[in-house]
Each structure stands twice: as C-alpha cells, then as structure tokens.
Amino acid sequence: MVFGIRKRIHDHLVERRIRRTRLVTKYGRCNIEFGNVKYGNHFAFLLDFWTTFVEFRWRFVLFFFIASFTLSWFIFGLLWFWIARNNGDLTWQNPSKGHIPCVDNVYNLITAFLFSLETQTSIGYGGRAITPFCSGAVTLIIIQYLIGNIINCFMCGVILAKISIPKKRAKTITFSEMAVICPKKDFLCLMIRVANLRKTLMIGSQIYGKLLRTTIKPDGETIIMDQVNIEFVVDAGKDNLFFVCPLTLYHVIDNTSPFFEMAVDTLHKQEFELVVFLDGTTESTNSACQVRTSFIPQEIMWGYNFLPIISRNKEGKYRVNFSNFSKVVPVATAHCAYCFHNMKGHHLHTIDGIDNGEFEVIDNLEQPNMTKM
C-alpha cells in the first residue's frame, strides 16, 4: 500500500514536471513567459486596443461590459445633475411655481441618474423629459446619445468577435494522445492520428511539424529550443487534405530524419518536443485557424500501430468508430531505424515477445514503462 502511494506521488510529480517543461500543451496553448519587457512596450497593447479586448478572458470582457455602461450612466447622471443645479431645478433650491426646468422631474441625484439611464438605453418611461429652454441640456443629450451608441457598437463587436474566434473551431480537431513508430509501406514511420469532429470540412488543410530540442554546436554554442522541420504526409499527399474522416499522418524515418539515430531503448531517454501543426480554413465561416499539439518522448510508442477505425455498414455507408481512435496494437518492428534500413533480416522484430499472429489490443494509456499524461 505504501509503495502504491509513493508511486502515485511520483507519477504526479513527473506529470507536473512534464507540464512545466512542455512548450506547447496537448490542447495547443503555448507555455512561455516574457520577462524584462520594457515598460514603454506596454503602450503597444493600448494602441492595439481592439486585439487586446478580443484576447481578454470572458470574465474581463463581462466586467468591462458592465462597467462601461454603468460608469457612463453615472458620469452623465452627474452632468445632468450639474445642469439641473445651475438652472435651479433641484428640490433644495426651492424653485418658484413658474420655474421652467431643463429636464422635467429631475430634482436630485437619483432622478438625474435615472434620466441618464433612460436616455442612453432609449427606455423612455415618459416621466422625465428634456425641455427646449436649455441649450446646454440639448447639447448634452446629443453627446450622450452618440457616446452610448459607440459603447454599444464596440462591446457588441467584441462579444461577436470572441464568439466567432477561429480557435473555438480548433477545439473540434483532435489528435491521438500518443504517436507510434512502426513499418508502413516498406518505410519506418512515425505516425499520428488526427480527426475532424465536425462534418464541415477544413479547406486547404496543411500538416507540418517542428522538433524542439537543445543543440550544442561544434564551437560550444548552446541553442535552446532549436527547431528542426518535420515533414508529414498522408496517403494522398501533404497539401489540400480531404479532411472528412480521421487521417493518419506519416513521417518517414530515413537518414535525414532526426529520429534516425534513436532506438526503442533510447527513445524515452531523449529530451525533445515534437510540435504538430494543422492549418486550414473553416468551410462554414471562411476563417483561418491553426490547431497545435505536442508529443514528448514518453508519448511516442515504438513498435505499435493504430487500430483501424473506418468501416462500412450493410447499407454501404462509411462509419468511424472513435472508441478505437487512440488504441494501438503491437506490430513487428526493428528496434532501431539503422537496423531497419541497413541490417538484412532486422526490418521485422517482435516487440515484447509478441508474435505476428498473436496481437493483443492495448490502450495507449496503459503502455508499460511510460509516464501517464
């Protein structure tokens, strides 16, 4: 029991360390911190206030929505109170019987605030109304009407922009939790599965990857987060994908691939992060979006392949079984890329003593000797 508790604590600490060291999370968020930014550069956010507001979290947008209207009502309420005071309309000023107010039934601060609210929201209850005998009041009601419309248009635009933001569409694109390495069409390939959960297509989709690692040059210079291009293809090519059903992405591990020098027993000892990008345009809104995910060495399974998930029913209709989307099966695979390409007879190698005819379905989250994510 004590051993089990220690193991769970160890797994939790490992998981937290992986989250901290991962540049891109599984859901596409970039884990990076900007330090020592000059104070003057912060004004750039104020100049580009539209993007700043759109990128705010919903809680701040709702706060600004409420605060902008309430504050404008209160400020104009003070101005209406000031006009009424200058005209002698207030109760404590004891206006005469024949006195003509600037605004009917505005005789204290509360009624001035209510008139400001009714004016800006066009409620028009009829109890309070402006009279044509004060030029300052006529000017103020025009100014408040214009400013109120500006606030309405701006806040409605921000809310609509946040609702239709492309990254929300990206949440309906999902990648497999794990990547696998196995033979495919006489090549040793690293494979990742991706699916579009909506029936609407992603037009002009492109897939590519970046391998992030720390590199030490021959002159001793250390490059942190060195980026290496990783080419991915599908059976029909790499550009303009027909993304109507789940696709399997292939990266051929040849002598130009950074995975060529890795092996089954050294893969999980490496320190790198494979970031995969999918760019495309949504068919329904015609807006471009990018989907990102990442894989660390502990999330790459050597000697496994994905289970098939596409079939046809009796009526001839295609069916996608998402219960097998991230499940894998062991396959005969060479224990290193060099063996696969250069050593005769080693391009097929059984993993964990499992024969070709005795495959067993294994969930990718239960891969032995692998940290759970």
Rank of each mutant, 00 (worst) to 15 (best):
F242D: 14
F49Y: 13
D89V: 01
A84V: 00
N342S: 01
A337M: 06
V24W: 11
A170G: 10
I203E: 13
V24E: 03
N87S: 05
I351D: 09
E283C: 05
S176A: 15
T139M: 13
A236N: 10
T200H: 07
K97D: 09
F49N: 02
E55W: 09
S164N: 15
T111L: 11
I147T: 09
N255F: 13
L211A: 04
G4R: 15
T52G: 05
E33F: 04
D186Q: 11
H347A: 09
K199G: 06
D355T: 11
F232E: 13
K314N: 07
I362Y: 09
L247M: 12
D11M: 04
W73C: 12
I296C: 01
N305L: 11
K185L: 12
I351H: 12
I296F: 01
T248H: 03
F359P: 07
V103D: 00
L160E: 01
V329W: 11
S257H: 00
C339D: 05
I151C: 03
L140P: 06
K217P: 01
E271F: 07
C182L: 08
V252T: 14
L274F: 04
V61S: 09
R312N: 09
F60V: 12
Y145V: 09
P368M: 07
F34P: 00
I223E: 13
L267N: 04
C245W: 14
F45M: 10
R169T: 12
Q93N: 05
M202I: 15
F277V: 00
P330W: 08
M202H: 02
C182R: 12
F60N: 12
K97Q: 05
M225S: 02
S68K: 05
G88A: 06
C30M: 15
I354K: 14
Y39C: 06
V158L: 11
V328Q: 09
M155Q: 12
A179N: 08
T51S: 14
N196P: 00
C134Q: 08
G88L: 01
L140M: 14
D104Q: 12
I362T: 14
N321Y: 09
V291A: 11
I224M: 04
W302K: 04
G88F: 06
N321R: 10
N87A: 07
F115R: 05
V103A: 03
S176P: 00
E283V: 00
D239V: 08
W80M: 08
D239A: 13
S294G: 03
D265S: 11
V61N: 08
L249N: 08
F322D: 06
R59E: 10
T91Y: 08
S116I: 02
D355M: 10
I192V: 15
G280L: 05
Q206M: 15
R19A: 14
K344C: 03
A236Y: 03
S176W: 10
I141K: 11
D355I: 10
T121R: 04
A112M: 07
P368T: 06
I130E: 01
W92P: 07
S122H: 13
M191R: 15
Y39H: 04
Q120A: 15
R312F: 15
V180H: 08
I181S: 09
R17E: 02
N305P: 02
